[in-house]
């Protein structure tokens, strides 16, 4: 009995230990705002994120000032007037893969998934759920997702003067390629 329990516990402990945490520093998050007047898109290629396959935990930390726009002034206004990046330099997400049991991190393939967690932007925390796909290819894990965000939910206000140029809802695209963290 003693031996069985011990070895079982050890086995679980070791299995847990053997599964690495996946990480990226060059993840991509972009967003699109579409209005009849103007389309605005921005991309951030320096997104940091980690996945813990043992627990299904998924976290993101995004530096707001790393979003790049097609016009320098848009970027300045984005940081100065809308996101207040000096006050709120980062956006974070901390969530869980809801169907972890369906994803085999040791087997190549596309796994549709759902992630639920807390998204913090502009100092405002909100629980969101978003569908996505996790692709396993060798020791590389790629996570992709597209979801809408309502700017008003995060206390981001659009002045009436530019209301016809900035959409109240922006489409966010996530594309992160992870490697086992060394």
């Amino acid at each position: 009995m003693k031996t069985t329990l011990l070895s079982l516990a050890l086995l679980i402990a070791l299995t847990n230990f053997a599964q690495p945490v996946y990480m990226t520093r060059t993840g991509q998050i972009s967003f699109y705002s579409k209005t009849p007047m103007e389309n605005i898109d921005a991309i951030n290629n320096e997104v940091t994120s980690m996945i813990n396959p043992a627990t299904g935990e998924l976290v993101f930390a995004i530096l707001i000032k790393s979003f790049r726009f097609e016009r320098a002034l848009m970027e300045e206004h984005f940081n100065e007037n809308y996101m207040e990046s000096d006050k709120f330099p980062k956006a974070t997400f901390s969530g869980k893969i809801s169907n972890l049991g369906n994803i085999d991190f040791t087997k190549n393939g596309n796994y549709p998934t759902r992630v639920e967690g807390e998204l913090t932007i502009h100092g405002v925390k909100k629980v969101i759920t978003s569908p996505g796909i996790i692709n396993i290819s060798g020791d590389k894990v790629t996570a992709t997702s597209t979801f809408p965000l309502h700017l008003a939910d995060f206390n981001i206000t659009i002045p009436s003067l530019v209301a016809d140029k900035i959409s109240e809802t922006v489409e966010v695209k996530v594309n992160c390629e992870y490697q086992p963290k060394k």
Binding site: A13, N16, R25, T48, M50, A54, T55, S94
Partner: peptide, 28 residues
């Protein structure tokens, strides 16, 4: 000893859950 082992194991899991965001921020 089983209890001790289990406790360590649980602690590991719990720690991993709580600290993944912290770990990411330390890393970056």
């Amino acid at each position: 000893s089983t209890l001790i082992l289990l406790t360590i194991l649980m602690a590991r899991i719990v720690a991993a859950q709580d600290d993944l965001l912290k770990m990411l921020e330390e890393e970056t």
